[in-house]
Each structure stands twice: as structure tokens, then as C-alpha cells.
């Protein structure tokens, strides 16, 4: 029921609480949701700890939605021509954590 909480660094931006902020960290895990009407959901927190706990975009998705979203992101990357997306040196390398 409780697979690892995966922590990874990110580089990008998110909009939450009515304003944009840079995101630097993500947490991905399965647990009880705060808002979604399910017992368990796949939860994604996009955060910027340097800006404080409220700099967070939170997702609570059912399993099918989480899988579809992940596949859509991977498929979008796979079909994007080379050179369109900048991948500068020093880009954070995601690593699974707990």
C-alpha cells in the first residue's frame, strides 16, 4: 500500500495559489488524499522549499489518471523533434529517494 516516496529535483515553474513560482523539488507517493474522493491516490507535490511550504502545487490522482498522465508526458517527449527542448548542462538529474 505504501511504496516509496520518491523525491526528485526539478527545474521549471508551476502555478498555484494564484501565482507562478519556480519549482525545484517533487515528491511522488501513494497515500490518503486530502481532497480527492478516494481512499488512496497517487500524489504529486511540486515544491520550492526555499519559498516555504505554501509554494506547492499538489495533485491527487486515481491510478488510471496517474498512469495516463505519466504516459502522455513520456509520449510527448518521445515525439518532440531533437533540439526543440533545451537540455542545458547542469540540469538536475532525478534520483529516487525515500
Amino acid at each position: 500500500m505504501h511504496p516509496p516516496t520518491r523525491l526528485l529535483p526539478l527545474r521549471g515553474s508551476a502555478k498555484g495559489g494564484g501565482s507562478w513560482f519556480a519549482v525545484t523539488d517533487a515528491s511522488v507517493y501513494v497515500d490518503h488524499p486530502v481532497h480527492a474522493p478516494d481512499l488512496h491516490t497517487v500524489n504529486v507535490d511540486l515544491r520550492n522549499p526555499a519559498l516555504g511550504p505554501s509554494a506547492r502545487l499538489a495533485l491527487e490522482l486515481d491510478a488510471a489518471s496517474a498512469r495516463a498522465l505519466a504516459e502522455a508526458i513520456v509520449a510527448t517527449l518521445a515525439t518532440t523533434p531533437p533540439g526543440v527542448l533545451d537540455e542545458p548542462a547542469g540540469h538536475p538529474t532525478p534520483t529516487a529517494g525515500s
Binding site: 515528491s27 507535490d45 515544491r47 522549499p49 511550504p53 506547492r56
Partner: peptide, 17 residues
């Protein structure tokens, strides 16, 4: 300690991480 004054769900996310 991790999240003074934060909303409970934001504080929980910070504590989890």
C-alpha cells in the same frame, strides 16, 4: 518546525519530504 504557519496539507507535504 518544518512549516510554521503553513496550511496543514502544505505542512504535511513538507514534513513528508
Amino acid at each position: 518546525r518544518e512549516a510554521p504557519g503553513a496550511n496543514p496539507d502544505d505542512a504535511a507535504a513538507t514534513a513528508r519530504a
